[in-house]
């Protein structure tokens, strides 16, 4: 029992220090990015639950809603990776962001066509 509570307190310590480190080291723009990722993931999960409860009709609407969130989330994570590691990707932040916007535009157009 003592060992378990010790283990839990160790875990919380690690999480706390990790969060402190995240707040200190990560740039504000990237924090914003992470917030977006969390929002999109949350929306996707809610839609999945809703689909389980209500049923898959209309399936095309569900697919477009779900894929829109997951796709946009994937693109956002991609942008984050590119921003955090400029040595690896060798492109400027502006170029990466422009790519991100174009990809999102294509995704949204597709999804809206499939939504009805």
């Amino acid at each position: 029992m003592k060992a378990l509570s010790g283990f839990v307190s160790t875990l919380t310590d690690i999480a706390k220090s990790g969060f402190q480190q995240y707040k200190k080291v990560t740039p504000d723009r990237v924090k914003l990015l992470d917030l977006l990722v969390i929002f999109l993931g949350y929306t996707a999960v809610v839609q999945l639950l809703y689909c389980f409860i209500v049923g898959s009709f209309p399936f095309n609407s569900f697919l477009s809603g779900f894929i829109c969130c997951v796709g946009s989330m994937t693109l956002t994570i991609g942008l984050r990776v590119q921003l955090m590691d400029p040595e690896e990707f060798k492109i400027t932040a502006e170029r990466a962001f422009a790519d991100y916007l174009v990809c999102n535009l294509v995704l949204f157009l597709t999804v809206i066509n499939f939504l009805g």
Binding site: D28, R29, L32, L33, L36, F39, L40, T43, V46, Q47, Y50, V54, G55, F57, P58, S61, F62, S64, G65, F66, C68, C69, S72, T76, A93, F97, L101, N104, F108, V111, I112, L115
Partner: peptide
Amino acid sequence: CAFPYYGSVFSTIAAVVGFSFIFLSSA
């Protein structure tokens, strides 16, 4: 019964657009 899906699509678009404004203005 598909309105949550419609809502999620447009909220995603709004979130991405809003994020872009903040992201660019904070540069």
